[in-house]
Design a protein around this nucleic acid. Structure first.
Lengths: 213, 213
DNA sequence: GTCTATAACGCGATAGAC
DNA sequence: GTCTATCGCGTTATAGAC
C-alpha cells in the first residue's frame, strides 16, 4: 500500500513536470506560428519529448492550446493585484503600467498567443473566459470612475483609458519584432525599458490630470 | 490590330478586377485565420472564383499574402500625410490619431494581417519592407523631436510616443472582438467611436504638455 | 508512462481539356 | 482566361510493442 502510494506520487510528479514543460514549449510555438501554423512535432521537439507523448498528456492540439490560454489568463489576473483597493490613482496607475510592461518585456509569448486568439475572434476561448474578462474589466472601470467622481483625476472614460494602457503595454510584447527593427535591429536595453516606463507613465498620468510628473 | 488592342485592354481590365477582388477576399481570410490557417479554397469562395483561378493570378499562397501586406502598407502611408510638414503639434497629433482610429474602425482586416505578421516575427515581410518602415518612422520621430526642441511640447521620447499612438489606435482594429465583448457584445456605436477619439486625443495631448484640452 | 510506425485526412499546387 | 480532376506532401492522431 505504501509502495503503491509512493508510485502514485512519483507518477503524479512526472506528470506535473512534463505537463509544465509541454505548456511552456507550446506557449512559445503557438506565439510564433499561430494555432494553425504550429505543429505538434515542433512543440514536442522544444519540450524534448516524443510527439506521441504530447498526445498522451493533451488529447488534441486544441486542448493543449486551451491549457496555454488559461495559464496566461491566470498570470495576468495575478499581476494586476497592485491595482486593487487603492485610493491613490497616481500610484495605482504607475504601478499597474510598470508591472504590465515588465510582464511584456519578460514573458512576451503569452501575450502573443492571447493577441492571436483575439485577432481571430476568440474562436477557441469561447464565451466563458471572455465573460470572465468582462466582469474583471468592469471592476477596474468602476474603480477608475470613482476616482473621477472624487475629483482625483479628470473625467476620462475608464474603459478607453484601460484599453489604452493594455494596448500600449502589450505592444512591447506583441510587436517586439517591430520595436526591435525600429531600434536599429537591437532589443531594447534595460535603460531603454526604463525610459519606456517613464514615458508611458508620464503621458498617462498627465493625460488624466496630474501636472506634477 | 485595333481589335487585338481592344482584346488586350479587355483582358487587362478583367485581370485588374479579379486581382482586386482576390486581394480583398484574401485580406479578410488572412486576418481572421492567419497565414497558415487560411485556405486557398476559402479565399476562392469569398472571391467567388474557382480555386485554380486564384493560383492563376497569384502563383503561390505566399505571393498572394505579400500582395495583401503591400496593399496595407500603402494605405497606411497615404493616411499619414496629415502628419507632415506642420508646425502645429496639437493639430498634427489629433488629426493623425483621428485618421488612424478611423482606419481601424473602417478597415480592421488590414491592420489584423499586419499585426499577425509582426507577432510572428515578420517571416514573410522580410527586411525590405521593415527597413522601409524604419526610415518612415525615423522621419516622424525627427519632426516630434523638433517640436520638443522648440518648446512646443514636453520633451517626451518621440519613438515611445509614436508606439503609444499606433498601439492605441490599432487596438480598435486588432482587438475589435475583445472591445465588442467588453462593450456588452455590441460593436461600438458612432457616438462611442467619437468618445474614443476624444478620450485618446485628450490623454495624448495633455500627456505631451497641453493643458487646455 | 514511453516510443515507433502508420493510418486517415486536408491542403497547396498543377495538368490538361475547354 | 476558366475550370475539373488529381497528385503529392505534411499533418494530426492512434495502434500497439515495450
Amino acid at each position: 500500500m505504501a509502495i503503491s502510494a509512493t508510485n502514485g506520487d512519483r507518477k503524479a510528479i512526472v506528470r506535473q513536470k512534463n505537463t509544465d514543460q509541454i505548456i511552456r514549449a507550446a506557449e512559445e510555438v503557438y506565439a510564433l506560428k499561430g494555432f494553425a501554423g504550429a505543429t505538434m512535432q515542433e512543440i514536442a521537439d522544444k519540450a524534448d519529448l516524443p510527439k506521441a507523448n504530447i498526445h498522451y498528456y493533451f488529447k488534441t492540439k486544441r486542448a493543449l492550446y486551451v491549457a496555454v490560454l488559461e495559464d496566461i489568463f491566470k498570470a495576468w489576473a495575478e499581476a494586476s493585484t497592485t491595482f486593487d483597493n487603492s485610493d491613490d490613482p497616481k500610484k495605482s496607475l504607475s504601478d499597474y503600467i510598470t508591472s504590465k510592461l515588465q510582464l511584456s518585456f519578460d514573458r512576451p509569448f503569452g501575450s502573443k498567443v492571447w493577441a492571436n486568439e483575439i485577432i481571430h475572434g476568440a474562436p477557441v476561448l469561447g464565451d466563458n473566459l471572455m465573460d470572465h474578462l468582462h466582469d474583471w474589466e468592469g471592476e477596474k472601470a468602476i474603480q477608475i470612475a470613482k476616482w473621477a467622481e472624487d475629483g482625483k483625476i479628470l473625467p476620462v472614460d475608464p474603459h478607453y483609458l484601460l484599453y489604452m494602457i493594455w494596448a500600449t503595454t502589450q505592444h512591447y510584447a506583441d510587436f517586439d519584432h517591430q520595436v526591435r527593427v525600429l531600434n536599429g535591429g537591437k532589443a531594447l536595453s534595460q535603460s531603454q525599458r526604463n525610459e519606456v516606463t517613464k514615458t508611458v507613465c508620464g503621458i498617462i498620468l498627465r493625460g488624466v490630470g496630474f501636472t506634477d510628473v
